[in-house]
Simulated scan of single mutants.
Amino acid sequence: MILKANNIFKSYGDLEILKGVSISVKKGEIVSIVGASGAGKSTLLHIIGTLDKPDKGTVVIENQEVFALSEKNIADFRNRHIGFVFQFHHLLPEFTALENVCIPGFIAGTDRKVVEQRGMELLETLGVAHRAQHKPAAMSGGEQQRVSVARALINNPTLVLADEPSGNLDSENATALHQLFFDLRDKLQQTFIIVTHNEDLARISDRTIHMRDGLIY
């Protein structure tokens, strides 16, 4: 297993969000997490991605118990091992597509030429190499989301975590993005955990995890 999250609890004040959730994922698997708003899906994803800490429980990624690390080492582990795709892209408006893609690679300390070459290769793979020197405002929503996927992949992460990645796209672009995840899995053996309300994506995933009231059922 590439990921094992065991007995995860999380509360904010008196509000209990996660009530003992466990999940394991194999390399190359595409797993969708579905459920109503407030079920705890995004909170679980953020904890798996080390963006938030559980009150109780463990998260092991590639045999590393991530919350046993120092804050600095957690940040370094996250940058190297976890890629994120969000609903609203979160591209930096002052940078070009290529620069946005390369930022995690620069943070990791990888040689600039190596990062830029991989960034261009990813943009080519994702069909947006012609947008490499364009800033986000000059790109469509579908193009911006493909750039954000390239950014998530720049450091060859162990896991890609996607939170409603097609929620801001029309049906045609959403379908294309979903197919892209499977193409990347087949080509790069990439592993995806996707929080989604999109029934079509959940249906074609390798596995669907249903959440309700902070629990998996």
Rank of each mutant, 00 (worst) to 15 (best):
H130F: 02
Q87T: 12
A176I: 07
I209M: 09
I8W: 14
H90V: 01
T110N: 14
R207C: 08
T191K: 07
E71H: 04
A138Q: 14
L51I: 10
D14W: 06
L51M: 15
L184E: 11
E121Q: 12
N6V: 08
A39W: 10
L18V: 10
I194V: 13
N173K: 05
G35F: 09
V101W: 01
A36H: 05
F9C: 00
L44F: 14
L44D: 02
E121A: 13
R203Q: 15
S32M: 07
F88S: 08
T50F: 05
L126G: 08
E65H: 04
R80H: 12
E143D: 12
S32Y: 05
A162D: 11
G20I: 01
G35H: 07
K19R: 15
E94Q: 13
I74K: 14
P136F: 10
L98C: 07
S148D: 12
I107M: 06
E164K: 03
E199N: 13
D183V: 04
L201E: 00
E116Q: 14
I204H: 03
A152T: 09
N198Q: 08
H81V: 01
K26W: 00
N6L: 11
G127V: 03
L188H: 15
E71L: 03
N168R: 11
G20Y: 12
Q179E: 14
L215F: 06
G167D: 01
D163L: 05
P136C: 13
L45P: 05
A68Y: 02
L123F: 13
A137S: 15
Y12G: 03
D163W: 02
L92V: 15
I154Q: 01
N73F: 00
A162Y: 11
Q87R: 06
D14T: 14
S42L: 00
K27E: 15
F95S: 02
K113Q: 13
G28I: 02
T158A: 15
F86A: 14
L201Q: 05
A108Y: 09
L98P: 13
H89N: 15
K19Y: 13
H130T: 01
L177G: 12
P136R: 10
S205H: 03
V85G: 03
I47F: 08
L159V: 06
F95H: 09
T175A: 15
F88L: 04
N73P: 01
R185K: 15
F67M: 03
H89F: 15
M211W: 08
V160L: 09
D14V: 07
A138M: 13
E16A: 05
M211E: 07
F106Q: 05
L45A: 04
I33P: 06
L159H: 01
A162Q: 10
R207E: 07
T208E: 08
A108V: 02
Q189V: 11
P93M: 04
V147A: 04
D186G: 13
S171K: 06
L15R: 10
N168H: 11
Q145G: 06
V115P: 10
R185Y: 02
A97H: 10
P104R: 00
H81N: 15
